[in-house]
């Protein structure tokens, strides 16, 4: 049964949680091995899962997420920095932090993904084009261009 991930949002970070009917040993490589990562995100991935190693994923043709691994603790946690290469949404490569924690729960694993160090109101306000930029991206998508990441085009990459 598919279940919606729980929603917890606090301040300038995003925390998502999902329970997966699989062991942490099965789930973990989906964050560190390109072939497995691409089964749920992206069309191309370059991963060097060790502290300081590269994390670069073509989420779609034009959207490239880039950062580096910070923590790699097999089957327990993995953390990496994250941003967009073309600096959309005021989020340049490596700007934000993603921490993934795997917690065993019986035969299942609870995956908690925390996306923090997101830009605050002040830093966005200092970029007067912030909102307009975001709007422009939406417009491109609406006009039939590559809409970028999956949320705008459910059902995978284009």
């Amino acid at each position: 049964m598919a279940q919606r991930p729980d929603t917890v949002t606090e301040g300038l970070e995003v925390t998502r949680e999902v329970r997966i009917e699989a062991s942490p040993e099965t789930v973990f490589p989906f964050f560190t091995e390109p072939n497995k990562l691409m089964r749920w995100m992206g069309v191309e991935a370059e991963l060097d899962p060790q502290p300081g190693g590269i994390y670069r994923v073509h989420v779609s043709k034009d959207w490239v997420a880039c950062g580096e691994f910070v923590t790699v603790e097999p089957f327990v946690r993995v953390a990496f920095t994250w941003g967009w290469e073309n600096n959309v949404m005021q989020l340049p490569p490596g700007a934000s932090l993603i921490e993934v924690t795997l917690t065993p729960d019986g035969d299942a694993t609870v995956v908690t993904l925390r996306h923090s160090r997101l830009p605050d109101e002040e830093s966005v306000a200092s970029h007067t084009d912030g909102w307009e930029h975001f709007l422009a991206r939406l417009s491109v998508a609406a006009a039939g261009g590559d809409p970028g990441p999956d949320p705008w085009a459910s059902g995978g990459t284009q």
Binding site: P5, R16, V18, W40
Partner: peptide, 12 residues
């Protein structure tokens, strides 16, 4: 991330 984690769940 919601959509990503849903796909992760299915794949894993």
């Amino acid at each position: 991330w919601d959509e990503g984690l849903e796909r992760l769940k299915a794949a894993a």
